[in-house]
């Protein structure tokens, strides 16, 4: 049986494992009405492209579980002046995630700060033309307190930057944007959960697939990129985070949440240090 694979740049498709009969997807006898699925016996193609959730996807759940004080989670960032593109890409994701925290807090000034940081980092990355319309839209929407529009623009900004990087064959940088955003988002989540611990809140940290995705992405980067100080630290930090996630079979303890928090905070501090 032959497979036709189509070379789209944003997609890496590969044939999954051994081909089995399509009955792998059918409900087994005796379980009528219950559809069961075994991903290891999947007879089709696996799309090896991961869409990383934006921080507000997790924040919205935390809002439903209580009323976190998002203003306490906002950080004043001192974005370093650097020409290191790996660091800039990590910083970009960090700043966009900071924007999502500011939106959750409905803090107009903090949103504007994030918008300005977005412009300055995109300028350093040479992506001003692509980003400026979004950044301007963020600033305009902040004046109108249009939080929905701001959230959409932050998401769109990140996508535009990642798409532009991918068009320029800078896929590694694009991964760094997602990584920086994920670290900042997770730091906020652990901070909120740590202040008001519950099993339901802590369960939001069950994200091993995303951590594995980032570790694989770093592992596929060229050797000299992998040897970048920040990526070496991040790789080590993510491995310890993954260990915590995988050992949380019966749920996350307060200690595990605190450990993940410390790891993310340490990495974010490193990202913000001038190289």
């Amino acid at each position: 049986m032959s497979y036709s694979i189509f070379p789209f740049p944003r997609l890496a498709l590969f044939v999954a494992g051994t081909l089995l009969s399509s009955s792998a997807l059918a409900a087994p006898q005796g379980t009528q009405g219950v559809q069961e699925f075994d991903p290891l016996a999947f007879p089709g193609q696996v799309v090896d492209d991961v869409v990383v959730p934006v921080p507000s996807e997790v924040f919205s759940v935390l809002d439903k579980l209580g009323e976190p004080n998002w203003r306490h989670e906002i950080r004043e960032l001192n974005v370093p002046n650097t020409s290191d593109r790996t660091q800039l890409a990590l910083l970009f994701g960090h700043v966009v995630a900071e924007g999502f925290v500011a939106v959750q807090a409905e803090d107009k000034e903090a949103v504007k700060e994030a918008g300005k940081d977005v412009i300055s980092i995109s300028t350093a990355l040479g992506l001003t033309k692509a980003v400026r319309p979004h950044a301007q839209a963020i600033l305009d929407a902040a004046d109108k307190n249009d939080w929905k529009a701001i959230r959409k623009e932050f998401d769109q900004t990140q996508k535009t930057v990642k798409d532009t990087m991918e068009e320029m064959k800078d896929i590694d940088l694009s991964q760094c944007v997602s990584l920086g955003g994920w670290l900042r988002g997770t730091a906020s989540v652990t901070s909120v959960v740590g202040k008001n611990f519950s099993a339901d809140r802590a369960e939001l940290l069950n994200q091993p697939m995303l951590v594995e995705h980032f570790l694989n992405a770093i592992g596929k980067m060229p050797k000299n990129t992998q040897e970048h100080d920040l990526l070496r630290s991040i790789r080590k930090g993510l491995s310890s985070v993954l260990e915590k996630m995988e050992s949380a079979v019966d749920g996350f303890s307060k200690g595990a949440v605190s450990d993940i928090s410390k790891t993310c905070e340490t990495l974010l501090t490193e990202i913000l240090v001038k190289k």
């Binding site: 497979y3 036709s4 189509f6 789209f8 944003r10 997609l11 498709l13 999954a16 399509s22 997807l25 991903p39 999947f42 007879p43 089709g44 193609q45 696996v46 799309v47 492209d49 991961v50 869409v51 990383v52 959730p53 934006v54 507000s56 919205s60 929905k148 959230r151 959409k152 998401d155 769109q156 990140q158 996508k159 990642k162 994200q207 697939m209 995303l210």
Partner: peptide
Amino acid sequence: IVREDYWNGEVKSGQKLMISHQ
């Protein structure tokens, strides 16, 4: 709230595709 990021591509008619998502 619609996410701006999405998956896309071209596939053989009838071919099953699988995506892992958080």
